[in-house]
Structure formats: C-alpha cells, structure tokens
Design a protein around this nucleic acid. Sequence first.
RNA 1: GCGCCUGUAGCUCAGCAGGAUAGAGCAACGGACUUCUAAUCCGUAGGCCAGGGGUUCGAAUCCCUUCAGGCGCGCCA
Length: 569
Amino acid sequence: MYNAKLEISKLLGPLVPGLETRQIYDMLEIPPNPDMGDLALPCFKLSKTLRKSPVQIAQELASAIPQNEHVNKVESLSGYLNFFLNRDKFTGSILTYILKAGASFGASDLGKGKNIVIDYSSPNIAKPFHVGHLRSTSIGNSLYRIFEFMGYNCIGINYLGDWGTQFGKLIAAYKKWGNEQAVQEGLINELVALYVKFHQEAEKDPALDEEARQWFVRLEQGDPEARRLWQWFIDISLKEYHKIYELLGVSFDSYNGESFFNDKMQPVIQELQDKGLLKESQGAMIVDLEEEGMPPCLILKTDGSTLYATRDITAAIYRKKTYDFEKCIYVTGVSQSLHFKQWFKVIEKMGYDWHKDLHHVPFGTVSIGGEKLATRTGKVVLLEEILSKAIEKTLETIESKNPNLENKHEVAQQMGVGAVIFSDLFSNRIKDVSFSWDEILNFDGETGPYVQYTHARACSVLRKAAESGSKAAADFDSSLISSREEYQLVKSLSLFPEKIKQALDDLEPSILTRYLVNLAQDFNRFYHEHPILTDNPALRSARLALVQAAKHTLCNGLHLIGLQAPERV
RNA sequence: GCGCCUGUAGCUCAGCAGGAUAGAGCAACGGACUUCUAAUCCGUAGGCCAGGGGUUCGAAUCCCUUCAGGCGCGCCA
C-alpha cells in the first residue's frame, strides 16, 4: 500500500545530515489539526546537532524540498516542518489498493507457518457463565482472529476448570441433597444451588468437608460412581457453555482442561527434581524464587497432591511439544499476574528458552455496584441474561425503525451480541470495569451497533447504486474526492493496517475497537455532508469507491473484534 | 509490611517509545429528516490531566515522592 510517510522520509533523508531515512520516518508525526498539514517533522531535536534554531531548520528544509509527486505544499511553522500531501495521488493510491484487496484489506502473511496458542475463556465447570468470563472469551477470541488475519495458524484452547476439590464438594452435595431429575431440569443452576448449599451446611458441620475430600480422593482413584457424576456435571456444563459460545460466535480447537493433565504431571515433577529445582519447605515441595524477588512457586502440597502451577507448567510443556508455538498466550484476570510470572520463571529455570514466548494477557476485574462477582454468594450477572436483554432491546429498535426487515431476529441477535462484546473490548484490557445495565444497553455513540449501523449504511448505498447500474470501480477520478470530510475518511482508512499491527503487538483488541469508532464517525460525517448517488456520474463513481473502501474496512475490522457485520439493519 | 496495577470533563474512557490549542462518547441544553436508513449529524457547556518535586527547548506522557482506589503476597484456581 502507498505509504506517504515513507516517501516523505525518503525525500528528507538527503537533506538532514546524520539521520537515516528510518529515523526520520519515526520522527514524522500527525499534526493535531488537519489545517496544519498531513504530516509533520518537529525540528527541535535537530537543533543541537545542526546548531541552528528549530525555526530556521524548518524554514531551510521547507525551501530545500524539491518538487515531487507526493507533496503539494511544505510549510514551516514555529519549529515544525508541515507537509501537505498530494491528495489526488494519496486518495487514488489508497482507495485503489483497498478496493483491490477487499475482504483481505489489512491481512498479511507475517505469521505464515507460525503457530500461536491462545488459552482463553476457560470457565470452571458447574459454574454459570457470567460477565466476568466474557472478558477472557472476547479478548481471546479477538486475538485469535487478529493473529489469524496476520497469517498465523492459531490454536484456541479452552482450558476448562474441570478438576479440583470443588468436585468432591459437588458430588458430596449431590449425594446428600440432590436428585437426578432436579439436575436434569435445573442444569448448572441446580449444580450451583448444591454447591452453595454445601458451603452453608459445611459452616455448621465441618464433617462435610471431610466427606468432600473423600469423594475427591475417590474421583482421583477412578471410582466408577465418582467418575460418572463428574463426567455428567461436565456434560451438563459444556452443553450450556456451547449455547453461549454459539451466540458469541466463539469456537475452540481444543477443550483439553485441567483434568487432561492429571496423568502427565508426574514426569514433569520428576524433571524438576532431576534439574535440582525442587526444594522441600514446610512439608511442601517448592521452586525457590527468592533470587528473582518472588515468593516461591508451590509444586506439591504437604499431602503430595499437585497444584495449579504444577498443572500449568505441565500444560505449557505439553503445548510446546504438541504445537511448537511461536507464542503461547494466556488470557486471564490480572489477579493471576504473580502466578504467571512465577511459573514462567520456573520454565526458564528448567532451561527452556521458549519461556520468553509465554505471554500473560491480563485484564481488569469486573465488579457490580462496587462488589466483586462471586458465584458462591449469588452476586453475579449471567451472560445469558445480558445477551438476551441486549437482543430483545435491539429487536424493539428494529421494530420501530425498520419493521419490514426480513431477517430481523437474526440481525437483532448479531447486533445485541455485538453491543455486549464491543463494550467489553472498548477500553484497555487492564482497566477494571463496573458493570452497568444502562451502559451495556445503550446503543448510541461509541458502541457496536453504531459501527454496525454505519457499515449497513454503506452497504445500503452500494446496493442502491447497483440497482441503478452504478458500481464502485477502479477507474474513478480521485481528484473529485477533495472535501475535508472525504479526505479525512481516506486518511482514516489508510491507518487500518498499522492499527491491526499495533493491536497484535500490544495484544490489545481495544486499539481496533476504538479505531472502528473513529472510522465510523469519519464515515458518518462524510455521509451526512456529501450526497453519494448524485447525477454527476464521475463524482458518483468516485464517492462510491470511497464508500466501498469504507465498507470493506468496517467489515474486516468488525470481524477482527468478533462482531458480525449485517448488510441491512 | 512488601510487590504489581489504576487515577485525565458530572459519568465511561482515548491520548502515555515527550512535541503545536489535552480529545471522544454518555448525560444536559440548542439545532438538522419532502432528498442515499436520524441506532445519524452539527452546535453550546463542561479540565490546576490526583497533589508536590525534578529531568527537558518542551511533560497528561519520563524519574522521585505523597495521597486515593484495586489486585496479589505457600499448600484455591
């Protein structure tokens, strides 16, 4: 794609002694106000080496720039060298490129032949899927799509929380108070109810805890009844999760959860032992991390049983062997940051140089009314409830604005779900979020429906144009796209590839989410200001090219953050 | 106590490999639909960028420090 910044830095290269073209490229920035130009070189840093005032440098450079096809005008303004691009060339090159690339605009083969493992969603079996789980799911899914778009081969893993002492409690509770029919009818809700009841009763009667422990031991030893119940609970949970995943448009390549690694930990423990990393402390086995300034990493409990870290280390080694990943990404809450730092370090101490390819992608905590979410106390908002409310509200809007829409239920689902995912991906992952019904059900302004609506608007114009025999074609006259709004839109469009790259480098989908809002704003301003289907064929054709390019970019961008892009709303 | 993170408009957030006058959206108020979908657009109002020091030609951005909030710190995950 045409890169004006690169062309300008090439022009400047020979004129600025002591600086590489590359360095100049990095110095170029976008002025705060478009009236000042399209690109600018601040000359303050050059002042020292050139022993001249920045103002003087800017002035001299301005007059030294030779006539060329890329820049129309160069201005010196208070120490800045401001460039006004040849809009005709810029617009023509960018739009032509986007029209040609179409659905693959922004894509790349950067990651060709490389594998990326992404561990996300990972709910705990027998717990309902609530807003808190959404974050890991939506961030992980978006990263998956971004990496895939950049040519990587992705392996999405749902590392299910399908093992642990809570299953002992659950089985004990079921044996005591549960029955098959109630569970068949109530599903996860019933399992949660049993779990909650267990905790309430255990407060009064500590013997229950012992009973739960016994059941877990039986489960570990392969007791048929324990295994059967355990598997049943998993099946029930997965069935409900699948409904949610289907709504969200999320899928996985592997569901190997914690239990998958039960029989794979022993060799790893042995390996830690052989490498002299294991140390006994207070009856437990640890890897000491004092030199690294961290608390020790617990590998075995006093009773010899394994822990979270043991499983994670085992899983990482297994994944490296199985997938030979370029990166292995873990999308979990920020509260687990230390845990990851610790066991990443253990991997390093084991001598695996791929420890540097392990990435924890943390996100902030979701709270509601100032309180943390907790399944045990019932302080949760279920994702299913949020999604269905959002879909319902979207349907109402459609009924009032476009009641004749053919597939309104499908569209309502796409936009309602889109609203929820979009809002989840809107701010930097690390920020804590306070759940609010008002916010999540607001579809005005910086929201998923706003971007989807904008996309549908573009589609609508293109459809109308096609009906009257006009199409966006490659042979448009770019000099006709000259207004402020049109030019701004072209500039925004041209930023898409670098925004994807940035989102990928930072493992931060919100960069794309926010970019899409900006792009939609620019499109809507243009749309409002300039009629597209005009009687002037040349002008119409040029504007249609612009609309077509915007449509592709909005559509591609929406897919990268996991939203659908309906053509009619 | 120690460590990590966050603090920008009434609210939710951008901007943080230093750069020109700190930007959006929501909420409020005022405008724009006989014309491509008004889930839209335009305007008004709203800020000692938590406080204080420093580095720099230049700091919301980097360093130090104080304060406030969140999270974590051995047998949960």
